[in-house]
Amino acid sequence: MGLELFNTFILLLLVASALLALRVKDLITASVVFGVYSFLMCLLWAEMGAVDVAFTEATVGAGISTVIMVATIFNLKRKSSD
């Protein structure tokens, strides 16, 4: 019961962060929220026993890819409508 509650909570946060990453206007915010999404995914995988996949997601998804996306966005000329 406790684990199911935990899973449901993480899953709800996962869906919320995925929707948020699509909805926010600012690209930097979107990539950081995407990092949060990766980390929640990593928690779910670790809980389900796929520790190797969780490890890869934590290092690549939440770590390197967020840094690389932010680095790329800094080199864009950003023009927002608001």
Binding site: A54, F55, T56, T59, I64
Partner: peptide, 28 residues
């Protein structure tokens, strides 16, 4: 992580990413 990858979770990919991340941290 690299050397212990066949006993515990981990392996070349994760160890390599961690090593690359340490240099990225210096650059940041």
């Amino acid at each position: 992580v690299l050397a212990h990858g066949h006993v515990s979770p981990g392996g070349g990919f994760q160890g390599g990413v961690l090593m690359g991340a340490s240099f990225i941290l210096v650059a940041l």
